[in-house]
Design a protein around this nucleic acid. Sequence first.
DNA 1: GATGAATGAGACTTCATTCAT
DNA 2: CATGAATGAAGTCTCATTCAT
Lengths: 211, 211, 211, 211
Amino acid sequence: MRSEGSPSGRKRNPIIEEARRRQIVDAAIETVAEVGYAHASLARIAQRAQTSKSVVSYHFAGKDELLEQVVTQIYGDSWAFIEPRLVAQSSAAGKLAAYIESNIAYMHARRAHLLAVVDVVGNHRTADGRLRFEPSTDESVLALLGEILRTGQRDGEFRDFDPRLVAVTVSQAIIGVLGAWVADPTVDLTAYAAELVTLFDRATRSQGRTT
Amino acid sequence: MRSEGSPSGRKRNPIIEEARRRQIVDAAIETVAEVGYAHASLARIAQRAQTSKSVVSYHFAGKDELLEQVVTQIYGDSWAFIEPRLVAQSSAAGKLAAYIESNIAYMHARRAHLLAVVDVVGNHRTADGRLRFEPSTDESVLALLGEILRTGQRDGEFRDFDPRLVAVTVSQAIIGVLGAWVADPTVDLTAYAAELVTLFDRATRSQGRTT
Amino acid sequence: MRSEGSPSGRKRNPIIEEARRRQIVDAAIETVAEVGYAHASLARIAQRAQTSKSVVSYHFAGKDELLEQVVTQIYGDSWAFIEPRLVAQSSAAGKLAAYIESNIAYMHARRAHLLAVVDVVGNHRTADGRLRFEPSTDESVLALLGEILRTGQRDGEFRDFDPRLVAVTVSQAIIGVLGAWVADPTVDLTAYAAELVTLFDRATRSQGRTT
Amino acid sequence: MRSEGSPSGRKRNPIIEEARRRQIVDAAIETVAEVGYAHASLARIAQRAQTSKSVVSYHFAGKDELLEQVVTQIYGDSWAFIEPRLVAQSSAAGKLAAYIESNIAYMHARRAHLLAVVDVVGNHRTADGRLRFEPSTDESVLALLGEILRTGQRDGEFRDFDPRLVAVTVSQAIIGVLGAWVADPTVDLTAYAAELVTLFDRATRSQGRTT
DNA sequence: GATGAATGAGACTTCATTCAT
DNA sequence: CATGAATGAAGTCTCATTCAT
């Protein structure tokens, strides 16, 4: 049980408190990345954070809350990286390319984040056995991509297709490229990203148009 | 272990033996599909197979071998379904379309197999924490797709691109579409498969060509 | 989780199984008697039964089932001792006296049973904090005593009073006498039992009657 | 601990100090009454007192001292209620009746006190597993009742019996009646108290006497 | 005077595996 | 061929207590 005296959940000294939580979440990310979700026990996470299981239990209501923080933090960080790069583009095709490239670039720089988020999202379940997070790809990501694609279709940049299907495909293609890099870190991820941009440009452009 | 040749009263019976193993592997598939890799204990698998843990341990060297059989069996079954449909196509583009459609069709008919194989492949690890299977997509699948794509490029059907990247993309796009269906079983998987074929046809065709 | 293969809950070899369960229940009784409910951990019980926690968990679904067995067993044993002594009496007054004396005699011979049953009944609670057993005195005991008292009133042996109140009082008086003996084992429990019989004889007899 | 005499800026304030302790003890009583001794953790008690564990630990040496205060306070309060009602009676029979009725009346008005004191007295143990308080009934209560009963015998009011046995019986009968009320709050506790007085009047009166 | 933070002991439970029959 | 029984490691979580501020 967390929160005593202050039912809001936040402690009186938010600075040290937040720092400790962040430190533990980071340790959890690294641990999941290294040994996988199934073997990422509180003991191992605590060990990496250089504390004890009790401290982890003190700062988080339980393993569930900790793992949810892992996902929340990675989603937040990656979005903070991607968003300005999207805003900088005015065309839909530009935004699509920027999304693909910045997403890959972010994970390129944080391999552990990639491994952890995929593992936790794909495995963390509620007591009744249902996945706690959206499977495969986050719903908000699909909504964003769908919006970009629909805008492009309205403006005549893109041909006619099912925006959701293409959004799913783009999303999974990115994961696939990242997965290939995880399996074999020698692949040139930047080149792959560029090729992916080309591929989806071709797949979505309306006929006869040129960049 | 009994001695071979069975000089004693009891007879070896490979048929019943194989049937038992298959029954247990099926139970394992269903269990993983239902409660997920992390909660698929031997006890639960045995319960679903209507036996006891001991029987499972008797027929398989351990949990590892059982889960490897799960993956092997699903890979084998799906390949048995897909291969004839590939052979029936002569063009590279035809083979690519056939691969996409038959792969999705197979999983469409066996939801539990899809859930189980994704879960086990993505989670089953060796004692030292490394994944026991190729991450994300099976290497042999990538080799097959790469071969089709390269043939198409050689014959002028396809434009110039990195075959491995496109192979990865095709593979992950299929998983993505299947994932969208798992998350929301009401999506029209057949329509999605057709759209996916169109999308990759556009993405790979050399300019100016038509079907 | 107990019971595998045989959903009934009983194992194939009921003899050895039942012996082990009994052994563990006995160890639980002694442990609760010695260190009290709150300190009677599975570890301590297992230690006294000369096994490990795992074995206890194997034979019982959990601590709850074990403690319920403790109470069930003691209730059953004591009733097996008391019943024939009740049947041997024809008059209501005789049955009342026999109940008091045999109840005290049984617990006199099994101090640990007395301590354990009082402790478990008074403390064992469900997850939501409610007592798992009837508080103070078992309802079936009160029903039995009430029946005896009502019969005595109908036959003119006993004066008019609230049968349930007197049943509760008899029940608690027995516990009180036993409690006095637990606190100070030098008290003459047999003499106390006899005095208790006299006391309730006086309190219940109809005026003018004699034994 | 600060030095005495408080030479520094802060002043010792025994009033606020005592109020705080009382507030915490009250919270402990309510908590034990609600969730039982075994689940009455310092955290839960602090939560109900609207403070934190640290505050509780600051005001009491430990959980032990707090629970001892719970018992002491309830014993004290109940005696303050009962004593004047005893003094008001001149005959031994009158005192006995007054004791029974005022005891029940007090607990009738404070259900939580009843539940808490029974639970703590029956469960609180020292490190070596021995009960910290007298089991069942307080020794001073038995002494008081014994004194009343002996006086009554000396004056010829009561017949000859073992005073301690009857004291124990009276004490437990009261607990029994209260227990019946706790189990079923709809029972008419006042009527039960009156019946109890009658019952023990009959059981103790010397022959041929009348009120 | 008071408290947020930390901590280690110990609680219950689940699990994969082994062994004698 | 099959299984009931046993087992120890490891998991998550709760708790009373202590300490620096």
